[in-house]
Design a binder for these strands. Structure first.
Length: 493
RNA sequence: AGGGAUGUAGCGCAGUCCGGUAGCGCACCUGGUUUGGGACCAGGGGGUCGCAGGUUCGAAUCCUGUCAUCCCUACCA
């Protein structure tokens, strides 16, 4: 039946698409590569956004908003950055349409309305922002500048995948300016830490923190720090990045400040971002063959009540619904997000399956039988177990259960990630481990050539030089050269 | 961008080879029986077959072009 989710073992890509579409998070749209985020998916994003926004503000940043369009001349100012994004930019060339004289009721682009200078739809906002910072920074007193924006950006991707890679996506991008290199590097690392904290503690996705190799670096950055997750298909997913931009943008946009000694110095910069891709990461990390498994902390609904309603028994229905409402009030007082399923038409079994597909962490069932016995049936989504709980203990029980589920799915994901992170010193062994999926930790001689060869031969890329693994001496797995780099390889999304 | 596949009702599909005026399942509407893990029976509404041309008395079906989507590569948050 089409209402069921494709099994992971059958077709993991279809499984993922089913989670998104049948879980009602998003829909395909009539715009190439762009999706419609549906209310349930957007509620999830709002919860994620609100939590992260607070963390960003708690670390001293403030929000602002910069324009969607970047004049081409500004865009090309930082050469490496421009070059890196050039192939995937949407460009506005005209500002007016007019009626087609040859085709009634149709419109054409008015050739008279060509823009003097093309506008690039931002694929990222460094250019507009640094052009603005130029006027904001005069003195060391203006620093640091710690600004974040929530925005949409457009990258004209060839192949798109719901949430993981869409032509337009939502994200936050932080852009900071500092007086010293040390302070900027500290900021870069600090924000990576915020991302790791957020993905692990809110989304329950374990991540490796580390530094990108040069070839994987953000265009225009001196260093890119990353958090990398492992998805259930054995592929790594870059979940967020934090860039140390050096003085590249300061020089390109001439952003200088006067020191206490009265000298002019270029400022030091960082930028960092996470996107709606994190929704894809969350789905691919926790979900199962029955559907989505939402981490309680960001789940749009944390608890769903299913009263056993009977079309022919309105009095009984009302008693059951009243009972639900009584508990909803108590849950809401504790900040727990609830929903009551009062649909008369659908049978309980159907509702159970539906709520499981959408990943609601806890289901509470009230039937006439439960009322008589003064209990409720409580089912948890993460391990599909259920138990009968006395009503006077229900609120505390569920509150604890949400915490337990959050911890359980994190531990489960971490165990999967850990057992699929393997050490390796032999190239043949490396190839077979990479083919099986997961991360492989191994020595690399630090050259782009070796990295490229390994990518060609195995499709694996260096995800990062991880914090978690000691940088001990050893032999490069490919060239055999002595090296101190130990890196994480994986096939990636 | 290269390779493969697919566009027919809201969704999933059959019909296309061999042209004759569109069908099935789910969903939806009405009525009834059901209701502790995806109910059943009966009746009913909805599409001119992605789009644009062409061939033909006649095109979902044949031809040309075009657009879109999915999968595998390549690129990326």
């Amino acid at each position: 039946m089409s209402d069921f989710i494709t099994k992971r073992a059958e077709d993991i890509n279809q499984w993922y698409n089913d989670l998104v579409i049948k879980g009602e998070l998003a829909d395909y749209s009539s715009v190439r590569g762009c999706m419609v985020i549906k209310p349930y998916g957007y509620a999830l994003w709002e919860n994620m956004r609100d939590a992260l926004d607070k963390m960003i503000k708690d670390t001293g940043h403030v929000n602002a908003y910069f324009p969607l369009f970047v004049p081409k001349s500004l865009f090309e100012a930082e050469e490496k950055n421009a070059e890196g994004f050039a192939k995937e930019c949407a460009v506005v060339t005209h500002y007016r349409l007019k009626n087609d004289p040859n085709n009634k009721g149709k419109l054409i682009v008015d050739p008279e309305a060509k823009l003097e200078e093309e506008l690039v739809v931002r694929p990222t906002s460094e250019a507009v922002i640094w052009n603005t910072y130029k006027t904001w920074v005069q003195s060391y007193r203006d620093l640091p500048l710690l600004i974040n924006q929530w925005a949409n950006v457009v990258r004209w991707e060839m192949r798109t995948k719901l949430f993981l890679r869409t032509a337009e996506f939502l994200w936050q991008e932080g852009h900071t300016a500092h007086a010293t290199q040390a302070e900027a590097i500290e900021e870069t690392k600090k924000m990576l830490g915020v991302y790791a904290d957020f993905t692990e503690n809110w989304l329950a996705i374990p991540v490796y923190q580390g530094v990108k190799s040069e070839s994987e670096r953000f265009a225009g950055a001196d260093d890119t720090y990353t958090i990398e997750g492992l998805m259930q298909d054995g592929k790594a997913l870059q979940c967020g990045t934090s860039h140390f931009l050096g003085q590249n943008f300061a020089k390109a946009f001439d952003v200088k400040y006067q020191t206490t000694e009265g000298k002019d110095e270029y400022v030091w910069a960082t930028s960092w971002g996470v996107s709606t891709r994190l929704i894809g990461a969350l789905l691919m990390t926790h979900s199962d063959d029955k559907g989505i498994v939402m981490p309680p902390k960001v789940a749009p609904h944390q608890v769903v009540f299913v009263p056993f309603l009977h079309e022919k028994k309105p009095e009984q229905n009302q008693i059951l619904i009243d009972k639900c409402n009584e508990f909803v009030t108590q849950f809401k007082a504790k900040g727990i997000r609830c929903k009551i399923d009062t649909d008369l038409m659908k049978r309980p079994g159907f509702k159970f399956a539906e709520h499981e597909m959408k990943g609601i962490p806890v289901r509470i069932v009230f039937g006439p039988r439960d009322l008589e016995e003064n209990v409720a049936e409580v089912a948890r989504r993460d391990n599909l177990s259920k138990e009968s709980i006395s009503q006077d203990k229900l609120v505390d029980h569920v509150e604890n259960l949400l915490t337990e589920i959050q911890a359980n799915i994190y531990n489960r994901a971490k165990e999967y990630r850990n057992t699929n992170t393997r050490e390796c010193t032999d190239y043949e062994d490396f190839k077979s481990k990479i083919a099986e999926g997961g991360f492989v930790i191994t020595h690399w001689d630090g050259t782009a050539e070796t990295e490229e060869k390994i990518k060609e031969e195995t499709k694996a890329t260096i995800r990062c030089i991880p914090y978690d693994y000691e940088q001990t001496a050893g032999k490069c797995i490919y060239s055999g050269k002595e090296t101190k780099h130990r890196v994480l390889f994986a096939r990636a999304h």
